[in-house]
Simulated assay, not measured.
Amino acid sequence: MQSNNKLRMAIRATAAVAVFGVAGQAGAVSFTAGDYEMAVYGYARFNASYDIDENVSTSTRSFDYGKINVGAAEDNEATGYFGADAVQSRIGVKATSPEGVMVNIEGDFRPGNLRLRHAYGSYNGVLAGQTWSNFTSFVGNTSTLDFDSLPGAAGYQSRTPQIRYTTGALSFSAEDPKNSIANAGAAAKNGMPALTARLEDSAGGLSYSAAVLAQQVGYDTGTADGSSFGFGTFVAAKMSLTDMITIQGALSYTDGANSYLYRSAADSAYIGTNGDVETISGYGGTIGTGINLGGGRSINVGYGMTEVDLDDAVAAGAYTDDPTQSIAALMANYKWTPVKNVMMGVEYKYATRETQSGDDGDASSVAFAAQYNF
């Protein structure tokens, strides 16, 4: 039993590095510099994709749902696209002072140049800088080779500048807001930070998280202005059914905060015919399972989706095109960890997109990845 537990923990740690970009400190190069405890970590990552029926992959060979053709365009699509890159590779450094002040700076190379991921400091529960949004949880995520993972995962699933306070299982933050008003153009503005609160904990074989977010969505043209209140919420959980099998998932709802509805690419609001800011609502979710086969091998299968209500916005003339209303994806992979700090895997991805008018389309892709951690 003890060896199975160690194996399961190793696979989960490797999966977290591959999917969410959290570089595992267990494999970091640690040393002391003066009175500071230092750690340098990262990985080299190769990603390759073969898009079977449409050219739908972007950097890191992640699935780009906006590239799925719909309607008549789907009947004239080309087939068979191959691509490969190593831009997901990253490096980071952590330093902890004798007083307990921790500083973390990390970058990767997506989409082709050095990109800042994390740059923050923390002390005594107070964090300031850029790191994962507090309106994010990974406990319900299914491990995928796709760097951006499944649509509908819990919260923002990315990093943002913020000030955060954590006490036990509770954390609160004021963050750089992520707003998008369909027909506001350059007049869109952020009048206040996004405010979040999150609870994340575990009990026995269950890990769980729940969070809420509130923000202001507004615009100001100089002669006209308006604003509205937007909010988002999610719940996420992961349950270990046995030592070898887990099930996990998440549910999200947003209204005036669709930038936090993961991978929906939907606007949060639009300006109505009377000049008022009208919010757009949406929902999403994921469900999946992870199966540890032993010997450093695992299988993961997950499904995710998002849908937004665009009928009123389209009726008000907020869009000149036919916007995406819903997306969904199924991802299934096989991963192998032949030795510590090395992961290889292959994944099949199938996705659908539907626009507000009812036109829809689908696409599929196969991906391969090899990752070497330090």
Rank of each mutant, 00 (worst) to 15 (best):
I91H: 07
T167I: 14
T286Q: 13
A18R: 02
R263H: 09
M38A: 03
G218A: 03
K178S: 10
A315P: 12
S240W: 12
S180H: 13
R12Q: 15
T352C: 15
I287D: 06
A369L: 12
S173N: 03
T60K: 10
D220G: 12
G256C: 09
Y262M: 10
T246V: 06
G21E: 04
V277Y: 05
I327R: 13
G226Q: 10
Y253V: 01
T279R: 07
A15E: 11
Y270S: 01
A269D: 08
T286R: 15
A23G: 15
N274Y: 15
Y350H: 14
D148S: 15
I299C: 03
Y262G: 12
T223G: 15
D322P: 13
F229N: 13
G361K: 00
V139W: 07
S228P: 03
S252R: 06
K6H: 15
D53I: 00
A73S: 09
S227E: 08
G218K: 00
V19Y: 07
V56P: 08
S364M: 02
G294Q: 07
L195D: 07
T242S: 13
A211W: 01
A328G: 10
A119F: 07
G285C: 11
A119G: 12
T131F: 05
V93C: 12
F231N: 08
G218W: 00
G275M: 01
S202K: 05
T131K: 02
T160K: 07
A265I: 14
Y334V: 01
M343C: 02
Y262S: 14
A26F: 12
G112E: 00
A26K: 12
V70P: 12
M192Y: 13
L170A: 14
S122Q: 07
A266R: 04
G168W: 08
A329M: 04
A26G: 14
G295L: 08
M305I: 04
S227W: 04
V366D: 07
G112R: 00
L213F: 05
G34I: 01
V139C: 09
I245L: 15
A329E: 07
D53W: 01
A86C: 02
F229W: 13
A23R: 08
K6Y: 11
A186Q: 04
G284I: 10
T96F: 03
R353C: 09
G345R: 03
D311C: 08
M344I: 11
S57T: 15
I181M: 09
V56M: 04
N134R: 03
G121H: 04
N55I: 01
